[in-house]
Simulated assay, not measured.
Amino acid sequence: MPEGHSVHRIANQFEQSFVGHRIEASSPQGRFAAGAEQLSGATMVDSKAVGKQMFLEFDNGLFLHVHLGLYGAWDFAGQIATGASMAETRTRRMATRRAENGKDPETGKDPETGKAAETGTPAHVADDDGEHSMASIGAPRTRRVRMAEQEKQEDDLESFPPEPVGQVRVRLLSDTAVADLRGPTKCEVLDAEGVDTAISKLGPDPLVDSPKKGGDRFVAIAGKKRTPIGLLLMDQSVISGIGNIYRAEMLFRARLNPHTPGTEVPEETLRALWKDWTKLLKSGVELGQMMTMDGLSKKAYAQALKSRADRHWVYHREGLPCRVCGTNIVMEDMGGRKLYWCPVDQA
C-alpha cells in the first residue's frame, strides 16, 4: 500500500501538471461514469494530500476524493513534472501553508517554534528494484510515469493522449497531460462539507498540520490509548500516512517495543516519534524513496539509495542479524500486517 510520501508526491504531480487546466473526466471502465460526468469540463484548482488520501478540487465546488488502498495506482502521461519541478512544487506548497498558518512567507519562521521550515531538492536516484525519484531534468517532458507505492518511468510518448489500458476507473485529461486511475479502494465525488468530514477523521499529517499543533494532537490521542504503539502508528485516525515500512522503521529508530501500550509510552518518546515521522516523510517526498537508515557514510548512503535491501534497519529482514546488536530480526503478525523488529534493541 502506498505510504504517505507517495500520496504527497502524487498530489504534487497534479498541482504541477493539472491545476489551472480545464479537465475532461471520463470512466473508460464505466464504474465511475456518473462521478466523471459531474467533474468533466471543470478546472482543477487545487490538489491536496492528507496521509494516504488525496483531494482534487475543481472550480465547480466539487472534489475528487481518492484512497489508493492496496492495489491503486495513477498512470500519468503527457507533459509530466519530474525531479526538480516536483521539488519546486513542494516548496510552493509549503510556503503557502506557512502563510496560512501564520508564518512569515518570506522567512518561513514559525511563531510557535521560531525555527525556519526545512526545504530540499531531490537527487536523481534509480535503484535495482525500479523504485526511484523522477529524473531531475527540469521542465516537463512528454512521457509516461506510474505513481503508486513505487514510481516507474517509461518511454517517451509517440502520440497524445494515449489510449486507456486496462481497467481505468477514471481518466482526467487536460490539454497537456492525462492521469488514469486504476484499482483504488475509494474514488468518490465530494462537496466541501464532505471533504471536511473526511479530513476530520484523519490524524495529523506533518506536511499539513503545523509542527507544534500536529505533535500536540498526536501525543494527546496516542497517550490516552492502551492500544499497542505498533497498532497506533498504523491507525490513520491517530497519525496520518504511516504504513507498514515506516511503522517498523520508526519503532526501531526509537528503540521502542511495538507492544508497549500508548499510555505507557513516555510523552517525550511520543514527541520524538512525531518529529521522526516529520523528518522521514519530508525525505520520502523529496527522494521518492523510503530511506530510513541514518548515520551512513557517503558510499553506504549511495548504496542504500540504489538497493532497497540496504535502505532499512529492520523491515523485511526476518532472520537476518540486527544491524546494531546482531540478534536475528523477528517477524510477527500485528494488525493483519507483518511487523519486523529486534527483540533485544526493542525489548
Rank of each mutant, 00 (worst) to 15 (best):
Gly4Ile: 00
Arg9Pro: 01
Phe14Glu: 06
Phe14Asp: 00
Glu15Cys: 09
Phe18Tyr: 13
Val19Met: 07
Gly20Lys: 08
His21Met: 10
Ala25Leu: 04
Gln29Tyr: 12
Gly30Gln: 05
Arg31Lys: 14
Ala34Ser: 13
Ser40Cys: 00
Ala42Leu: 09
Val50Thr: 10
Lys52Tyr: 00
Met54Lys: 08
Phe55Ile: 01
Asn60Cys: 11
Leu62Ser: 11
Phe63Val: 02
His67Ser: 09
Leu68Ile: 00
Gly69Gln: 03
Gly69Glu: 05
Gly69Cys: 02
Tyr71Thr: 14
Tyr71Val: 11
Trp74Tyr: 15
Ala77Phe: 10
Ala77Gln: 15
Thr82His: 15
Ser85Pro: 03
Met86Ile: 14
Arg90Trp: 15
Thr91Pro: 02
Thr91Val: 13
Thr91Lys: 14
Met94Ile: 15
Glu100Ala: 14
Glu100Asp: 13
Asn101Gln: 15
Asp104Ile: 03
Pro105Ala: 01
Pro105Ser: 04
Thr107Asp: 05
Lys115Tyr: 10
Thr121Lys: 15
Ala123Thr: 09
Gly130Ile: 04
His132Gln: 08
Ser133Ile: 00
Gly138Asn: 10
Arg141Trp: 03
Arg141Val: 14
Val145Asp: 01
Arg146Pro: 01
Met147Pro: 03
Glu154Cys: 06
Asp155Val: 10
Pro161Arg: 08
Pro162Gly: 05
Pro164Met: 05
Gln167Cys: 08
Arg169Pro: 02
Thr176Ala: 10
Ala179Tyr: 07
Ala179Lys: 03
Asp180His: 09
Gly183Phe: 07
Gly183Ser: 14
Thr185Asn: 08
Glu188Phe: 02
Val195His: 11
Asp205Arg: 04
Pro206Phe: 03
Lys212Asn: 11
Lys213Cys: 07
Arg217Tyr: 10
Ile221Ser: 07
Ala222Thr: 08
Lys224Pro: 05
Arg226Trp: 08
Thr227Arg: 13
Ile229Met: 13
Leu233Arg: 01
Met234Gln: 14
Ile245Pro: 00
Arg247Thr: 02
Arg253His: 08
Ala254Asn: 00
Arg255Met: 08
Arg255Asn: 10
Thr260Ala: 09
Glu264Lys: 13
Val265Met: 08
Pro266Phe: 11
Arg271Asn: 13
Leu273Glu: 04
Lys282Tyr: 13
Ser283Asp: 12
Ser283Phe: 04
Val285Tyr: 09
Thr292Ala: 15
Thr292Arg: 10
Leu296Arg: 09
Lys298Leu: 12
Lys299Arg: 15
Gln303Gly: 04
Leu305Phe: 03
Leu305Thr: 04
Ser307Trp: 09
Ser307Ala: 09
Arg311Trp: 04
Arg311Thr: 01
Arg311Ile: 05
Arg311Pro: 05
His312Trp: 11
His312Tyr: 15
Tyr315Leu: 09
Pro321Arg: 12
Pro321Lys: 12
Cys322Ser: 08
Arg323Pro: 05
Cys325Thr: 07
Gly326Ile: 07
Val330Arg: 14
Met331Glu: 15
Gly336Asn: 07
Lys338Glu: 13
Trp341Ile: 05
